[in-house]
Design a binder for these strands. Structure first.
Length: 210
DNA sequence: TACCGA
DNA sequence: CTCGGT
């Protein structure tokens, strides 16, 4: 494996775990057993390294969002897959990391915002349109408006954790509630019925697992 | 590894 | 003093 890739991999791992500012260039080089000089042969500065890691991370995320269309049987199923992607990508984001990006790495933060406003938004908008064509989602829904609302809703509750009592709910629980509320405003009776088939099937498979 | 400067 | 950068 290329030295550059090792740097990106290790730095990304450390920064995801401990936050960006708490991981120093010394930490990264020590962990890899290389000199700082070597890192600076591949990256102009720390900002450059952070941007590279962010871009790579978002690239992987993007391909996950773009895979839902092929993997899904219908729009209701795809909506479930997209929400899984959403939850996964939330799980990967440590609040520490997002704050550091927002405050000290504005370029990388912009990448995140673009990702949110492009990839995630497009996925949701597209699945809503598909669902309307298939008769599972209500025609009265404006796909563009409602997908923006959904996106902002998800994001607001990540960024602003003091919106809900943290001792009472986990972020995952909050997001599940929001998802449930969202889909039930979206479904036609046929969509609702199909959705329940998926969720009860999921419960059964969980029972066999445990 | 030592060192400088923010 | 800490940490990015030389």
């Amino acid at each position: 494996m290329e030295v550059r890739d090792k740097i990106v991999e290790k730095a990304g791992e450390l920064m995801l775990m401990y936050g960006i500012r708490t991981v120093t260039m010394d930490d990264i080089s020590r962990d890899l057993g290389i000199s700082k000089k070597t890192i600076y042969q591949y990256f102009k500065d720390k900002k450059d390294l952070v941007n590279t890691i962010t871009a790579l991370h978002l690239d992987i995320e993007k391909s996950r969002f773009e895979s839902t269309e092929l993997r899904s049987e219908n729009s209701v199923h795809e909506l479930i897959l997209i929400s899984q992607c959403l939850r996964e990508s939330i799980k990967d984001m440590r609040m520490n990391v997002l704050n550091d990006l927002q405050k000290f790495y504005p370029e990388a933060w912009k990448m995140f915002e673009n990702f949110k406003r492009n990839t995630m938004l497009c996925s949701i908008t597209r699945v809503i349109i598909k669902g309307q064509e298939e008769g599972y989602f209500r025609k009265e829904i404006d796909p563009h408006l409602i997908s923006i609302m959904r996106m902002e809703q998800v994001h607001t509750f990540i960024i602003n954790q003091n919106l809900y009592p943290k001792e009472k709910y986990t972020l995952a629980e909050v997001q599940m509630q929001l998802f449930d509320h969202f889909v039930h405003g979206l479904f036609t009776p046929a969509g609702y019925q199909l959705f329940n088939q998926y969720t009860t099937a999921k419960l059964k498979s969980n029972e066999t697992l445990s």
